[in-house]
Design a protein around this nucleic acid. Structure first.
Lengths: 219, 219
DNA sequence: TCATAAACCGAGCGCGCGATCTATTATTGG
DNA sequence: CCAATAATAGATCGCGCGCTCGGTTTATGA
């Protein structure tokens, strides 16, 4: 007899996913051939298809990993005492992977593939809903604490916060000269001015005005 | 003898491009087969390849058309007397196609394809540079007129204005419930608060404060 | 030790793709 | 009217793809 070792099995799957990751990011899902994945993973096609039923399953596993990891760390990021500070932490955390070379093109590829693949669409949709919930809660708390413009609808504003973060990924994926880490202060400045609204009316909460952001984009 | 009629020839090409447009938007470039394009255009494969050397050329022609049309109308939009009003016109004009059903997925598809196709990348890059130049000029003028925060770098801010507009397309392409026309006021509100900066210091220009935007996102 | 099943290999299959080729029809200038 | 050639058709081709399948090797429990 011989039993499967779940740890070994998972590690082998992960090895394949990692190999495919770079290919999917640089070439896209469709143009990446299973032969390329086999070569990159250093194993035969027979073996790769021993671990995954088809190419699509490899892509889904890749996104599932990202989703799990993100959800796990999101819970920690929002655990700040001050809503506004917690919001900035969440934004910084969600925007951080845009600085990695593979994440932006992969994210775009995932969005496009989700357009035709219902299972993928469901996966990303859950992911987005989770983020939206967290951010909406933080915005609601921040509004209650008088830290942001109370006239903004939290859910509505939250979706725009997410859109702003997403634009870090699209910019990084499309413009080679775009530097996500360097642009983060500007992102935060835009969010601050958008969410706080008229500063002389609403800057009464626990968070102090953050002049550092404004000075970061000065010429 | 028989000469080609340029008008007829161009019209026939356009007919093929129009047929392919919907397919590319809904299925993506790779998954759209030449057979589908032939069927949609109502002609044989032999005839389609009489007008285009290959599938890629159809996609490029599609984007070239969009670019020409946009560049033409952009020149008109920026011809306003007041820089801030002209900027809003340009933003509205650039964001408008996001409300069409095909434009958002097509734009995303184009971005991704440009990642691997140098010719496509060149096409979109020129396009972006043109937009950036126009917006940068308007921001510079607006800053000189005291209508926006003078501490912002015009070129830097312009690229974020474009990113904001682009997020209308990505949101429209990824979230079925996203309503571009309805979200336009919020986009303008974000831009206004970002660009004007501290309102009590800089709201001295020709454009009056636009409370209508703020009220549009109130719950 | 040895039976058993997991892990792995790589030749190759079937299919559908982008593109071609030859043939036929329509249209124009002279 | 008659070449000449554009416009159109559609069968077909070669290739490369995702994936399968039979066989071999390796590891594990009893």
């Amino acid at each position: 007899m011989r039993t499967i070792d779940p740890a070994k099995h998972a590690a082998r799957r992960q090895h394949i996913v990692n190999a495919a990751c770079e290919l999917f990011a640089t070439q896209g899902f469709e143009r990446t051939t299973t032969a390329q994945i086999c070569k990159a993973a250093g194993m035969s096609s027979g073996n790769v298809f021993h671990y995954f039923p088809n190419k699509r399953a490899i892509f889904i596993a890749l996104l599932q990993d990202d989703k799990d990891e993100k959800a796990e760390r999101l819970a920690a990021a929002k655990a700040g005492a001050d809503p506004w500070a917690a919001l900035l932490d969440v934004v910084r955390f969600l925007a951080a992977p845009a600085a990695e070379p593979l994440a932006p093109p992969l994210a775009m590829e995932a969005m496009l593939q989700a357009h035709r693949d219902p299972e993928l669409a469901e996966l990303l949709s859950q992911d987005n809903t989770d983020e939206l919930t967290v951010i909406t809660e933080l915005l609601t708390e921040a509004a209650a604490a008088g830290q942001i413009d109370p006239d903004l609808d939290p859910g509505h504003a939250a979706s725009w916060v997410m859109a702003l973060i997403a634009s870090m990924y699209t910019s990084a994926a499309t413009e080679p000269s775009f530097d996500p880490a360097g642009q983060l202060p500007t992102l935060l400045l835009i969010l601050e001015r958008f969410l706080r609204g008229e500063p002389h009316e609403h800057r009464t909460g626990g968070a102090p005005p953050r002049e550092t952001n404004a000075s970061a984009v000065a010429r």
